[in-house]
Amino acid sequence: MLDLHHIFIIQKKALFFLLALCILGWGLTPFGSIFLGIGLGAFFGTYNFWILTRRMDRFDRNLEKGKKTASLGTALRFGSGVAAAAVALTLPKYFHLISTIIGLMIPYVVLFIGSFVSLVKNSNNGK
């Protein structure tokens, strides 16, 4: 299974690829606000995944030392999602709200796909 840092590196690569596609979609199609919304949501979603990665590292270190950890940053990640939605609501001419929310979920879809691919590769190596 992949460790969290390796998954985050894959997430960043996927984000840059997606942002490039969103820029192309924004410039070349009449659906500019949808592509900008997806890009905005994916950016904030990757930020949320970075927060989760950092907090999981802290959680693991504290667990090894026998200390308690207050939280995994759920409130901060929730606030980031609210901020992305607030930007989309404030600037509806530029950002489509529903596509922003879909963009927020993209890093988790990439995480699921990466885990599935890793599982399939590991099961094929065992045969």
Rank of each mutant, 00 (worst) to 15 (best):
G41H: 03
S123K: 15
I101Q: 00
F44R: 07
N62F: 01
Y47N: 05
V109Q: 01
G37K: 13
L111I: 11
S33H: 07
R77S: 15
L76G: 02
L76D: 15
L2N: 12
L24T: 03
I106D: 05
F95I: 07
S71I: 00
L89I: 10
L72G: 07
F78H: 01
I34T: 07
L111W: 09
P92L: 04
A70G: 00
S123M: 14
S115Q: 13
G79Y: 06
F17V: 15
N62Q: 15
F35G: 01
T46I: 02
D57W: 00
G41R: 03
L15A: 11
M1S: 14
R58S: 06
A85G: 11
G41Q: 12
N125K: 15
S80E: 05
Q11W: 02
V82E: 00
I106L: 15
F49S: 05
F78G: 01
A84W: 07
K127M: 04
Y47K: 12
P92F: 03
L15D: 04
I98Y: 05
M105C: 07
K68P: 01
F59M: 09
A84M: 06
P107R: 04
G103D: 09
A75M: 12
G114A: 13
H5P: 00
I113R: 01
A85T: 10
P107V: 10
G126V: 13
T74M: 02
L19P: 05
T100W: 09
G45E: 12
I7W: 02
K68I: 06
F16S: 11
L119M: 07
L52P: 01
A84V: 02
M105I: 14
L89F: 14
N125I: 00
K12W: 13
W50V: 04
F8N: 08
L15W: 10
L91S: 09
P107G: 06
F16H: 11
G25A: 09
G81E: 11
L18M: 14
I106G: 05
I101C: 10
L52C: 04
T74V: 10
K12M: 15
L36K: 14
R61S: 08
M1Q: 07
M56N: 06
A42E: 09
L97D: 01
G39S: 12
S115N: 15
L104A: 01
A75N: 00
Y108L: 03
A84T: 02
G66L: 08
K12E: 10
A88M: 08
R61C: 00
G73P: 05
I102S: 00
N124L: 15
A88K: 03
L104W: 06
V120Q: 10
K68T: 09
I106W: 06
